[in-house]
Amino acid sequence: MRLILSSLAALAASSVMAAPLSTVGSVEVSISPELQKKAADDLGVQDVDRLAAELRRDVTRELERTGVLAGGRMQLVLTDVRPNRPTFRQLGNQPGLSYESYGIGGATIDGQAISVTGEVTPIHFQWYDSDIRQAWTKSTWSDANYAFHRFAYRYGRGESYAAR
């Protein structure tokens, strides 16, 4: 009986010691001053804040899944976003504007990734849809959200490292 208990204790101790470090130290997302002004004047601050939170969630989830940048930090700046449809704020500011209006959307992300060893890798990513034919089927922030998912996916697989 003691042999079994000591074996189980040794197995539990080895599994605790073999536990990996945190997959990602931190992902920080800020909004550029130009985009903050654009949000306050036109897009709506709540919408842009919600997009920054979505970018952070997407990147954190993908880095945890793939293990890229284990223990490091990522500092991202949401530089630009374009909606596919008018935002609530735009509809309120421009009486003749309709939610049925649509256009090409997307996003630009800049920043840096800092590894555990202190190596800094610059990041630049932008994606804007190039075909307006599908835009009529999309919601307000569809292309911006797609840009976030695409960035997170590509970065998690090493495809967007220092893409300039």
Rank of each mutant, 00 (worst) to 15 (best):
G72D: 06
D131Q: 12
A147E: 06
R133T: 13
G111I: 04
I114E: 15
S15A: 15
P86S: 10
T23F: 03
T117H: 00
V27S: 07
G111A: 09
D129T: 11
L21E: 11
Y161W: 05
L21W: 05
S15R: 11
V68L: 04
E159F: 00
P86Y: 05
V45L: 06
R61F: 03
A144D: 12
I31H: 07
R82Q: 07
F125V: 03
Q36M: 12
V24N: 01
S22A: 12
V120Q: 13
A13H: 12
P86I: 08
H149R: 06
A135L: 09
A19K: 12
F88A: 13
S139I: 09
G105K: 08
T117R: 01
R164H: 09
A39Y: 06
E64S: 10
W136G: 08
A12S: 11
Q112I: 03
Q112H: 02
G103F: 07
V29C: 08
V45F: 02
S32V: 13
A13L: 15
R57W: 03
A40G: 09
G111S: 07
T140N: 09
S14T: 14
I114D: 14
V24L: 09
E62T: 05
N145E: 15
S30L: 14
S6P: 05
R150F: 05
S139M: 11
S160G: 00
D47R: 01
G158P: 07
T60H: 03
L21P: 15
I104E: 11
I104A: 14
R65I: 04
L5C: 09
A9E: 15
A144L: 14
Y99C: 01
G71I: 06
L91Y: 04
L3R: 13
L5P: 05
S14M: 10
N84H: 10
